[in-house]
Computed example of a mutant assay.
Amino acid sequence: MAASPSASPPLERNVLSLAIADRPEAARRLSLADLQRLPPQTYAAMLPAEERISRWQGVPLNQLFDGAELGRSKRLRVDALNDYSALIPLSDLDTYQPILAYRRDDHYIGISERGPLFIIYPLVKHPELRTQVYFNRTVWQVSRITLE
């Protein structure tokens, strides 16, 4: 599914909720503009049902939470707009550095293209990730990430 060169989304609209289990006071919401202020990473990846490689740009997941908070936790729970959820072990953040992508092939990802946020692993660089386990962790339409 190709990203369309449609108009840019409102960058100040909140698109992501971040939470820490058992710490409701730490919850926060981020806009695309907030995410773009963080140092970006770009990966080449082909999604399971597609036959083309895309260039994905986003924020490494390990940049979304303070390092001290990561140290006390074991995984991320990623929830999507369509009620799908996946668990990502924190070991993936160190080993493969998945990103929360907000651009695909230099375009913002619309909701109709399974955006605006997408978990992407470096599937081209690490072909061993092309398994159902990692495909299940490649969540689209990400709306909430909880540190558990």
Rank of each mutant, 00 (worst) to 15 (best):
F118I: 05
L32V: 03
P24A: 02
S6N: 07
A19R: 13
A19D: 03
E51Q: 15
R104A: 03
T95E: 15
S31R: 07
R104S: 05
L76K: 09
D34V: 09
A68N: 02
R144T: 10
P116K: 12
R137E: 02
I120R: 10
D106A: 10
P116T: 11
P60S: 11
Q41K: 12
N62F: 03
P60E: 09
R23A: 00
Y43P: 03
P39F: 03
D34I: 15
A44E: 15
A33K: 13
R37I: 05
A27W: 09
L81C: 02
D22H: 14
S4L: 14
L117I: 04
Q132E: 14
S73T: 14
W56F: 15
H107Q: 15
G71K: 10
S85T: 03
Q57M: 13
S6K: 06
P48F: 11
R130C: 02
P122V: 01
P9D: 04
R144L: 11
L11P: 07
I145M: 12
R137F: 03
R29S: 00
L18W: 07
A26V: 08
L11A: 11
A44L: 10
G67S: 14
V133L: 11
R72F: 05
L76P: 07
L100A: 01
Y134D: 03
P89H: 06
S6D: 10
D34A: 12
M46C: 09
A27D: 08
T95G: 10
A45M: 05
F135A: 15
S8F: 05
R144C: 04
R77W: 10
